[in-house]
Design a protein around this nucleic acid. Structure first.
Lengths: 369, 369
DNA sequence: TTATAGGATGAAAGCGCTGTCAATGCCGGC
DNA sequence: GCCGGCATTGACAGCGCTTTCATCCTATAA
């Protein structure tokens, strides 16, 4: 005979959440059964007004908060969207996450964000964690998952969206842009302004940054230019400070620099500040272009040129598609690989090369320090 | 007789995670019972080598991922730390969250971050959500929770840490600093440099920003100065761009400005750029100090003075205390209210007022636009 | 009046795991 | 050759909720 549920006095297990009210407590207080309380909370229109009022009162009096774990286990609905990004501090992902929150929260979903810290292994672990939490969909920044991660994702049976970049063989859905193409275009833009000595600096080089750099190298090669000695790629964390440092380093290698393509805006801003510090005029002596087009680019002096990537739109579309799949349970979207492109935003920090004016004074000053 | 578990053909419930392997599947494949698998996964040293090997193999072959929900429900251990911050984009909280992640993840806890978007109601909802998820501790940015939120927190029975500010009556544990005092000190710093016309600009004014402003006003009043017409407080989102705008607005109200205290560094950077644009020399014509001392302050040209707040340390200490409580189950720390202070970081954007040189040309130019 | 929807409520089972305790097998020691 | 003790393993109940299906009651039609 199964024993009466409840705690056996003197032999109770270590109680965690002491005295926390549960469904049956509310039910007892309202004088109804537990099922009715459950219903009243989820589909209030299914119970009578009188009962609903009594239950509401009981809930308030007891400070009842439903146990989400039990609910999720019983219904196999977690309302969790799993997200993995490589960084929580990078401005790009900050806005990307904001877009995801904005899209999912109003629809009753929680967004569970895990940080892979630019490591494939940590990403794999994060993915396993999210699968363990039974996330109803998975949104990943990047396309470079490990084999095991791919297997796990495929086995999970939930929609997976890879973003930020275009994949050759997407796991499921892919919304992105060509990082390589964007790197090529940014470099091409500088070349088209008449610059020949175009350098590239990068920090925290991950897969995406690497492909941007490849774009830079291709554009240089296509223009018949040598990019050897014009690249500094650093694995340390990117920051404004780092931008100043790498630019300084570059100046030592290539004092007659004409244009600088920075892997991201932080580096570009740091380089700009360093120019001001050294009296290098931007854009007269040096053209600078960043990447990502963060908020501050437009406000800087001179306003920074950059490459705008559709980070908000990528997140929005990912959310849209995921919600559609979850709703329509199973109806896959017709298009599963979407290229959202990018845009070169030309501002005051880049200008056409003017013969003569630039060369002399700048390099002198640049070397002075 | 309870029916045999398993799906009744033709009448099965809507299956969510089709065919996802569970503990019993692994057990069957390894030829052991489910409990043994559970043990092998959690305390490998408790099972024999042979069994462990077979189980590991089965896990791999089936791509088994434990159902975290079921595990948490059964053990009443979620390993989740609940965190509520008012913004996911503000640089301060970005670093604060990073510190929390760094502290908790290595200890086997997940950090569940919810965004209150500077709204008390949303914060209350976030807190309820976290309680529903049975977070094992709660770390909140700020001290201004609603009454119901406080009740929920007290009823939850888990440690609660309020951070970023010092509370009169903490809910539980409080690690912070005096925002008001910091505002006072920053203003005092400018006054001590000989400035009289000291203005304050603020955006996205929340409780903390308001108290910083009160500090500013008190410092002005204590110095016998009038702060009327020297303050612009804006409720819109803060950004570099906004800094330029508010500074421009302030210039119209107070053309003979000598020093500017910005509510945060983004505004200060925007104001700095605007000065460059207008040919206002910093610090000769105008001293500028920001707040938070974000990374880029030190790199800007001129380097921005700011007020450094111990955001990393607040998070670290909060995590430390929480971990101690969870471990030692019940042993409260002796000190439950910790003041971590702040620091005025004087850099090149602030300087002693020099008679004459400043006044004339600057105001002219300032008014020019 | 009696049959008959249809709305409101409840009883039972089970989601996938873990805690507890009992059962089994094997060792050396007497 | 029997027993205590240790190392392994398994059976069972239950975490707090939802799903399913049965039951009850009232209102309406016949």
């Amino acid at each position: 005979m199964p024993q009466r549920s409840g705690r056996i006095p003197g032999k109770s297990r270590p109680v965690k959440s002491v005295g926390r009210a549960k469904l049956s407590d509310v039910a007892a207080r309202a004088g109804v059964s537990a099922v009715t309380v459950s219903r009243a909370l989820r589909k209030p229109e299914m119970v009578s007004d009188d009962v609903r009022r009594r239950i509401d009162a009981a809930v308030r009096e007891l400070g009842y908060v439903p146990n989400y774990l039990a609910s999720a286990l019983a219904s196999s609905r977690t309302h969790i969207i799993g997200v993995v990004v490589p960084s929580l501090t990078n401005g790009v992902f900050v806005e990307y996450l904001k877009a995801l929150h904005d899209a999912f929260l109003p629809k009753g979903f929680q967004v569970l964000v895990l940080n892979s810290r630019y490591s494939q292994d940590e990403e794999e672990r994060a993915i396993a964690t999210l699968i363990g939490h039974h996330a109803e969909a998975m949104i990943l920044a990047g396309i470079d998952q490990t084999d095991r991660a791919r297997k796990l994702l495929e086995g999970s049976g939930v929609p997976v969206v890879q973003t930020m970049e275009l994949a050759e063989k997407p796991i499921d859905i892919n919304i992105g842009m060509s990082q390589r193409g964007a790197g090529y275009a940014a470099t091409r833009f500088l070349l088209d302004l008449g610059h020949r000595k175009v350098a590239h600096i990068a920090a925290r080089v991950d897969f995406r940054a690497r492909r941007r750099m490849e774009g830079y190298q291709k554009a240089m090669a296509d223009a018949g230019l040598d990019s050897d000695g014009m690249v500094i790629a650093n694995l340390m964390q990117s920051s404004v400070q780092r931008g100043a440092e790498l630019f300084t380093e570059m100046l030592a290698k290539a004092p007659n620099l004409e244009a600088l393509f920075c892997c991201n805006d932080d580096l570009a801003l740091g380089a700009l500040f360093e120019c001001q510090r050294r009296g290098i005029r931007v854009p007269e002596d040096l053209s600078i272009i960043g990447f990502n087009d963060l908020d501050y680019c437009a406000s800087a002096y001179p306003a920074l040129s950059s490459v705008a990537i559709p980070r908000y739109e990528m997140a929005r579309r990912a959310a849209e598609i995921v919600l559609e799949i979850i709703r329509g349970s199973g109806s896959r979207p017709k298009q599963t690989r979407i290229d959202l492109g990018f845009e070169i935003v030309a501002r005051d920090s880049t200008a056409r090369r003017t013969r003569g004016s630039a060369r002399g004074p700048r390099t002198t000053r640049a070397l002075a320090k």
